[in-house]
């Protein structure tokens, strides 16, 4: 019950912050539209017959623009949007700590698990709304640009599959919010968002960048979280099994670590 009361307060704080609309909803949609416009303005390579272009180079050029196709871009932008959920979760936790608001609550009968639930639920709800809106916008763009719809069945299947990624990014938000003060949190999270976008292959095809780069990205969860939702929307169920398992493992480890860190820090603050 206490966690729901805390959840209600957190969701009100989030919904009353105009910046949360700009970053959590506005920015992903703008990116979706802008990237589609950029992609449609890039001239598609016309290879004259008889010209000896190596097959590898030709495939690489095609892959470079393939990630900007709306069916590839929509799931990747939905994951990118979750990085802003992480940012706002981090700011929320760090602001509460810095402002002594948490001190008041530490003196109340609230337990650490109630704090974690209270921080997680509101951001999970907003993340869910953000993913649905991104997919609806992607569907509209697909109809306008390509004249064809996403596979609705695959699209609906994709939505619940975001749960591990949502938990992972909220966990990261709680983790950074517990470690950082409200001055440092936005800067560190911004750097993290940029790194997650690059290492997750949101704007580029990691698989076409060589084995070394793939090996580096595979060690982190972002590449897998983008890969499996792209596979899900494409109906490639075989291709999404391993990435979703890896992402789920990362999500569990990160979330449990953030909860333990929060509880430890709460005791240390005492």
């Amino acid at each position: 019950m206490r966690s729901l009361v805390f959840c209600s307060r957190n969701i009100k704080e989030l919904l009353r912050n105009p910046l949360s609309y700009v970053f959590c909803l506005g920015l992903p949609l703008v990116m979706l539209v802008v990237m589609t416009l950029i992609n449609s303005s890039i001239p598609k390579p016309e290879i004259p017959s008889g010209v000896g272009i190596p097959a590898e180079a030709s495939a690489s050029a095609a892959a470079a623009t393939r990630v900007f196709e709306i069916d590839m871009l929509t799931p990747a932008i939905a994951v990118f949007g979750l990085t802003f959920i992480m940012l706002f979760c981090c700011i929320s936790v760090s602001s509460d700590r810095t402002s002594a608001f948490l001190t008041r609550l530490y003196a109340s009968p609230m337990k650490s698990t109630e704090f974690i639930i209270g921080y997680t639920l509101p951001f999970a709800i907003v993340a869910g709304a953000q993913i649905v809106i991104t997919y609806i916008t992607g569907e509209i763009i697909s109809l306008i640009v390509n004249g064809e719809s996403f596979n609705i069945g695959y699209m609906l299947l994709s939505l619940p599959l975001f749960i591990p990624s949502v938990i992972m990014f909220i966990g990261l938000g709680v983790f950074f919010g517990t470690l950082l003060n409200d001055k440092a949190a936005p800067g560190v999270c911004s750097a993290f968002i940029t790194a997650a976008a690059i290492l997750g292959g949101i704007w580029m095809d990691i698989d076409a960048m060589g084995d070394g780069w793939v090996a580096v990205c595979s060690c982190l969860p972002f590449y897998h979280s983008v890969k499996y939702v792209r596979c899900a929307l494409a109906g490639d169920f075989g291709g999404m099994v391993l990435p979703i398992l890896i992402c789920t493992a990362f999500a569990l480890v990160i979330f449990v670590a953030s909860a333990l860190l929060f509880a430890h820090k709460a005791k240390a603050d005492k």
């Binding site: 307060r9 009100k12 704080e13 009353r16 912050n17 402002s99 002594a100 608001f101 001190t103 008041r104 003196a107 109340s108 009968p109």
Partner: peptide, 16 residues
């Protein structure tokens, strides 16, 4: 904790 409450040095309110 149910019988006691505290008003800390720093104002601890939810601003929004």
């Amino acid at each position: 904790k149910l019988l006691v409450n505290v008003s800390t040095q720093e104002t601890a309110i939810a601003g929004n």
